[in-house]
Simulated scan of single mutants.
Amino acid sequence: MSRGSQFVAGICGLCAEACDACGTECGQHEAEHCQSCAEACRQCAEECRQLAGAAV
């Protein structure tokens, strides 16, 4: 990001997709550690989306 790479937005967008998928999968399980993982993934996805938007 600091060098202004043309790939940053795409990489951050892909990271957000992966985190969303992980959060969805983990969110389907009732175990506390799965719910904690799902929340962490959702937060990561949001951060990645923000970075992707900043890179554009």
Rank of each mutant, 00 (worst) to 15 (best):
M1F: 15
M1C: 13
S2K: 11
S2F: 00
S2L: 06
S2V: 03
R3M: 12
R3V: 13
R3F: 04
G4P: 04
S5G: 10
Q6M: 11
Q6Y: 08
Q6S: 15
F7N: 15
F7Q: 15
F7S: 13
V8I: 09
A9V: 09
G10D: 12
I11P: 06
I11L: 14
I11Q: 13
I11E: 15
I11G: 13
C12G: 03
C12A: 13
C12S: 10
G13Q: 07
G13N: 10
L14T: 10
L14V: 05
C15R: 04
C15D: 10
A16T: 03
A16Q: 04
A16G: 03
E17R: 15
E17G: 06
E17N: 12
A18K: 11
C19T: 11
C19Y: 11
C19V: 06
C19G: 11
D20C: 07
D20E: 13
D20V: 13
A21E: 13
A21K: 14
A21H: 09
A21L: 12
C22Y: 02
C22N: 05
C22I: 10
G23A: 06
G23C: 05
G23V: 02
T24V: 13
T24C: 01
T24G: 00
T24K: 05
T24P: 02
E25Q: 14
E25C: 04
E25P: 02
C26T: 02
C26A: 09
C26W: 05
G27V: 00
G27I: 00
G27R: 00
G27D: 01
Q28I: 01
Q28M: 08
H29F: 15
H29W: 14
E30G: 09
A31K: 10
A31C: 04
A31W: 15
A31G: 02
E32S: 12
E32K: 09
H33C: 06
H33N: 12
H33P: 04
H33M: 04
H33W: 05
C34A: 10
C34Q: 02
C34G: 03
C34E: 02
Q35Y: 00
Q35E: 02
S36A: 12
S36E: 12
S36H: 09
S36G: 07
C37A: 12
C37M: 10
C37D: 02
A38T: 14
E39I: 04
E39Y: 14
E39M: 04
E39S: 07
E39L: 03
E39R: 13
E39V: 06
A40L: 08
A40Q: 08
A40I: 01
A40D: 08
A40C: 06
C41A: 12
R42V: 00
R42A: 11
R42L: 08
Q43L: 06
Q43V: 14
C44S: 13
C44K: 08
C44A: 13
C44H: 14
A45D: 06
A45S: 09
E46N: 08
E47I: 01
C48N: 07
C48S: 11
C48L: 09
C48K: 03
R49P: 00
Q50P: 01
L51A: 07
L51P: 01
L51E: 06
L51Y: 01
L51N: 05
A52H: 04
A52I: 03
A52C: 05
G53V: 03
G53W: 10
G53S: 12
G53R: 14
A54V: 09
A54G: 11
A54L: 08
A54N: 09
A54I: 08
A54P: 03
A55N: 04
A55S: 09
A55F: 05
V56P: 03
V56T: 14
V56I: 15
V56N: 08
